[in-house]
Simulated assay, not measured.
Amino acid sequence: MFKKKILSIIAVLISSVFANCSFATTEEALFLENVARQYILAQFTEKNDNIRYNIKVSKVDRNRDFGGKCSGYLSAKLLTPEIKKNSIVKIICRRKNNPYSIQIPVSIIVQRATIVASDNIPKGSAITQSMLEKKFVNENLILNQSITDASSIIGSKTKKDIRAGDFLKISDLCLVAKGDVVTISARSHGLEIKASGIAMEEGKLNETIAVKNIKSGKIIRALVRSANSVEVVF
């Protein structure tokens, strides 16, 4: 009975020791993963509110004992001359009593802001700011016709029913309808001239349409820049 009790106590102590070791190495592994993540994020120095970086870090071995967090002796570097979507961060610990190095693969997903409908928008509706919201998505999933600047489509009219959460596309919207009174702008040598015109045809964003200058009666070709606004490009 006494022997069984001793063995039971030893088993509890061993279990406790291994539990503490497991916690320590897991904590160190998470620490190194975060070092790799923060190092990659630090490479993107340009601030852009329309871009986010999602960093996925490969798991570090939870069973390896790194001897602590190596605070004050740690450095990190890329194993390639420049950052790529799939990169490797080499972390080096130069601690005298327990130096080590480890290579951690990371993948970088670039997410860009895209405009989506915040609610159902019926066909023929004039777009207002309250109908729109910004959503960050993987840049590989963004279509060429996706809208990234909400201000450029305010006042445009929908050509189809749009459901809440749908991406707004250039082809879904009519920024200028035939017969609309539009503002014609022209820039040259730092100067900007504006005039009023009448759209001779329908136009989508960045599409060239015929516009009649109300004052001169002259018909010109101009790019649709926003709702009821066109620009003459020299």
Rank of each mutant, 00 (worst) to 15 (best):
S15D: 04
T114S: 10
E202P: 02
V233N: 08
S16N: 04
E28D: 15
A19R: 02
Q145V: 07
S152M: 11
V224H: 09
V116L: 07
P105F: 08
S87W: 04
A36Y: 11
A19F: 14
S146R: 01
E192K: 11
V176A: 13
S188T: 03
L13N: 03
F23M: 08
T148I: 10
I220K: 01
N98R: 05
F18W: 04
I219N: 02
R52A: 14
V181D: 13
A29K: 10
I104D: 03
D166E: 15
R95V: 09
V230T: 11
K178T: 15
L173K: 02
I102M: 00
V35Y: 10
S22N: 12
N20A: 15
D172P: 13
N63Y: 12
V60P: 04
R187E: 01
K59I: 06
A117D: 07
I109K: 10
I198S: 01
A19Y: 12
C93P: 14
N98K: 07
R52L: 15
K56T: 15
L78D: 11
S107V: 01
S16P: 06
R64S: 05
V106Y: 11
K212H: 08
A24G: 06
I142K: 03
E192Y: 09
G197H: 12
I109F: 01
S16K: 01
I209F: 14
P81H: 15
I127L: 15
F136G: 06
F2C: 04
K4D: 09
